[in-house]
Nucleic acid binder design. Structure first.
Lengths: 192, 192
DNA sequence: TAAAAAAGAATGAACGTTCATTTTTGTTGT
DNA sequence: ACAACAAAAATGAACGTTCATTCTTTTTTA
């Protein structure tokens, strides 16, 4: 286990509390006082680690996004065949969205609102490069449709966000079978 | 043109102002005073038309959602063949998301945050029934994959939301060609 | 001219942030 | 090993502001 200083522990608690509260109530109903209480910390302590509320959510966003992409590419190797690489990345992303549901919900909310300021959002996008490179190669090898990265993402990766939210809100249970179906849909919409 | 009473005009201005402000700043930075100012109305006047702020966004959500689905199904007829029906609905939805960008952005934000309370959200879902019925028929006729409605929606309709936001945020221009490609991706991921 | 609609100013609560203190930590001299 | 103490971390209370909402008055409508 990594050695965590007392400060890091407190900071992590604040990050976790922010995610949980923003997920369940939204930015507008996640006051600093509640975040502090949930992290067992004084409101004033937050300002030892973050400049202000905006800085807090920006930093949480960047960190969660980084954790997400690190997880997504962990078992991927750029030397893999395009088909195998895509399947591995896709399934890691699916894993993350279903297992680290809180984090993924937070990202979805950030990506669909003006909650995060633009520089932080840009920062979050950079990490996706390995997937874009893989697609580039897939297009060159004639294995992937010659579409814009935005369209490829919209039809292969992004649907997972919708399914995750549907699952979280109830009324839909995403089983292993569903996952395999979803993967087939994803691949069939981008493969040549 | 429909005859609008003075009250209806004021109410519409409030709805429009709410959409614009929430889109650009988020719920947390869209105070009643600004909404009122943008609608050229006194803050107190808002309370003649809406109970409170939550009621305001709930009502806006329900109305925009209703306008969206009315537009989506306007040229659709349940007697159509499944393929034709789907294409027509899909393209109407695409139209709406690209032309009525403000309204569509607002819906995307509502659908991905706890901004709207649960009853209002349920209310908004109901309108999609014609599409679900079409899919049901498509499955029975062996034209559409026997997948959960959630997965069908995630892979055929929802990607449009992602593309719309990407377009709005810049860096991506959704041309007519792109649209046709997107439609083909949508159809190929749900057709049997 | 009465009723309805609208306005601006007022109100109290809640919020983000800061301040004055206290507590904890780590270092030094014995 | 430990007392003394300075620096850092953390706190609860307090501050000024902003917000949603209401109240009283004025304007518009019928």
């Amino acid at each position: 286990m990594a050695e965590l200083t007392k400060g890091e522990i407190k900071r992590n608690a604040l990050v976790k509390a922010t995610i949980e509260l923003v997920n369940n109530s939204g930015f507008h109903a996640a006051p600093m006082s509640k975040i502090a209480k949930m992290a067992n910390v004084s409101p004033a302590t937050i300002y030892l680690y973050f400049e202000n509320k905006q800085d807090l959510v920006n930093q949480v966003y960047i960190e969660v996004k980084a954790a997400f992409t690190e997880y997504a590419f962990e078992t991927f190797d750029p030397k893999m065949e395009v088909e195998e690489g895509f399947e591995i990345i896709w399934k890691r992303i699916a894993d993350f969205k279903l297992k680290e549901c809180e984090e993924a919900m937070f990202l979805a909310q950030c990506d669909n609102t003006p909650m995060i300021d633009e520089p932080s959002r840009q920062q979050g996008i950079k990490h996706l490069q390995p997937l874009l490179d893989l697609w580039e190669r897939g297009k060159n090898e004639g294995k992937i449709k010659p579409l814009s990265d935005y369209i490829l993402y919209a039809y292969s990766i992004n649907p997972l966000s919708f399914l995750m939210i549907a699952q979280k809100r109830g009324g839909f249970q995403l089983t292993e079978d569903h996952l395999e179906e979803a993967y087939q849909s994803a691949w069939s919409s981008i493969k040549k």
